[in-house]
């Protein structure tokens, strides 16, 4: 059971999440808090969200704080989510960039990559279309949540997860059965570089990217944080690179140095000339 928080408690929790992870939760999202934190209450043996807040108000930050941030930032994901961005990647973006780079490896970044379905989808698309380039390419997976990154590195998925969006021929080709789970084969796992990153804080040591996926992520941030994140991503992208956002997202009023372009059924962004 997780009875609702009173308005002051809810406001405190919103401020905590904003300060520690730059996630913006407003009063319309109380259901999200209740749903996401119910498993945390159970794990910690607590009965109410108020009891959890008492722990969150303690300093220094502990594993409980980290667990709450992780629970609130784990995004729904699936293999080949929305399909068309990956058709566009396969049919338009990869052929163009592979040609321009003369077959050299590509640097691809999945920001807020959650449990890894998106980066492994990209890895499969690249491997299927350009196996030699795939072997030389790196996919940077970043997330604020270390637990999901560990899962990404292991590449272990349940039957319910591989049922979601993954074509059966690709399941057979790129996964091994491990008991009740399925594990991504080593040839794809070695393309992955998983790192903890809070996008709201300036980063370093990230290679210039040819392609960036930051889909259904910006929605969690306020406008200033969005501008800051997108501006820093732009500076981390090759001049002829491509940026993919979620289907309902745009850079209108966020960054005028990106130009909107269409390829296949996808809207994506290039650095403005």
């Amino acid at each position: 059971m997780s009875p609702s928080l009173d308005p002051q408690e809810f406001a405190w929790l919103c401020t905590f999440l904003r300060n520690e992870s730059a996630i913006i939760i407003d009063e319309t999202k109380e259901y999200l808090v209740t749903t996401r934190l119910a498993p945390v209450l159970k794990e910690l043996g607590l009965k109410t969200l108020s009891e959890l807040l008492t722990q969150l108000k303690r300093r220094p930050l502990t594993a409980v704080h980290q667990r709450v941030i992780e629970a609130m930032t784990t995004n729904e994901t699936s293999f080949f989510r929305d399909l068309h961005p990956f058709d566009t990647l396969r049919n338009d973006i990869l052929p163009e960039l592979v040609k321009k780079r003369g077959g050299a490896g590509l640097n691809i970044w999945c920001a807020a990559s959650s449990t890894g379905q998106e980066p492994y989808t990209i890895a499969m698309v690249l491997r299927e279309a350009f196996p030699d380039v795939a072997a030389r390419s790196k996919i940077l997976c970043t997330d604020i949540n270390n637990t999901v990154l560990e899962r990404t590195k292991q590449g272990l998925y349940t039957q319910l997860e591989v049922n979601r969006g993954l074509p059966a021929p690709l399941l057979l080709k790129y996964f091994d059965r491990k008991g009740q789970e399925w594990q991504v084969k080593e040839e794809l796992r070695r393309m992955i570089d998983a790192r903890v990153m809070n996008l709201a804080i300036p980063w370093s040591g990230v290679a210039m990217m040819d392609i960036v996926f930051i889909r259904n992520v910006l929605i969690y941030f306020d406008i200033e944080t969005k501008r800051s994140i997108i501006g820093r991503i732009r500076k981390n992208m090759a001049l002829d690179g491509f940026l993919f956002l979620g289907g309902a997202e745009s850079l209108l009023n966020i960054d005028s140095d990106f130009a909107r372009t269409m390829a296949g059924k996808s809207t994506l962004y290039k650095r403005a000339a």
Partner: peptide, 29 residues
């Protein structure tokens, strides 16, 4: 079993149990 089904001409393979989203995804494929 999955390999045999695909080799025999199945276009997709959905493992029970599954969610409506999984069925929708497979039809999308």
């Amino acid at each position: 079993r999955m390999q045999a089904a695909l080799a025999a001409g199945a276009d997709e393979y959905l493992m029970k149990p599954f969610t409506p989203d999984a069925l929708r995804d497979k039809l999308g494929i």
